[in-house]
């Protein structure tokens, strides 16, 4: 008997590591050489068919990587079943950023959240600054899924999302989670004036 499961997935990571490109490859199997920065967050869906007659529909929030949006991230990961934290293998600093996202997820997100660490731009291995060993070791220590991908060539993209789909619980009904999320999300609602305090970037120290 076939069944369809539905999960919420959030993409996090520093700006320009290729989050939107990764999603575009996954959802449309396309790649643009030049992409403008994401503003706010983009919502996409994609369905993955697993071997055993099961399909998994991902509801994806592709978030903007800029610092000023950082304080909005909890809105997206709070109800997420899985998170893909992306870094750029040619930028060592982007792995540091990924680590800080993972720490935040481990502290603040639902404890059952499935986290995948994803080293993108694998096609640029010649300019690699992050070794596979280093990232893999870190992922193992933290109990994360890990893969390198290239949104440009498509390498590893479908595989990582499928691996996540397989790792997500097939027994607990995701619709039950869906029911729970409304309450949780409603709590995040704030009146307009109070929301100013939640403004993006507000908690960020001036790093200039």
């Amino acid at each position: 008997m076939s069944k369809q499961l539905q999960f919420k997935l959030v993409l996090l990571g520093e700006s320009a590591v290729g989050k939107s490109s990764l999603v575009l490859r996954f959802v449309k199997d396309q790649f643009d050489d030049y992409r403008e920065s994401t503003i706010g967050a983009a919502f996409l869906t994609q369905t993955v068919t697993l071997d055993d007659q099961t399909t998994v529909k991902f509801e994806i929030w592709d978030t903007a990587g800029q610092e000023r949006y950082k304080s909005l991230a909890p809105m997206y990961y709070r109800n997420a079943n899985c998170a893909v934290v992306v870094y750029d293998i040619t930028q060592a600093a982007s792995l540091e950023k990924a680590r800080s996202w993972i720490r935040e997820l481990q502290r603040q997100a639902d404890p059952s959240i499935v986290i995948a660490l994803c080293g993108n731009k694998a096609d640029l291995a010649a300019r690699r600054q992050v070794s596979e060993e280093e990232a893999k070791k870190y992922a193992e220590e933290e109990g994360l899924m890990w893969a390198e991908t290239s949104a440009k060539s498509g390498e590893g993209v479908h595989e990582i999302f499928t691996a996540i789909a397989k790792k997500l619980p097939t027994t607990t009904s995701p619709s039950a989670r869906g029911g729970a999320r409304t309450g949780a999300a409603a709590r995040t609602g704030v009146d307009l004036n109070k929301q100013a305090a939640n403004a993006p970037g507000q908690n960020e120290p001036c790093n200039c």
Binding site: V27, I39, D62, A199
Partner: peptide
Amino acid sequence: SAAASWLP
């Protein structure tokens, strides 16, 4: 390609 965007 997104179905929607959510912008602060």
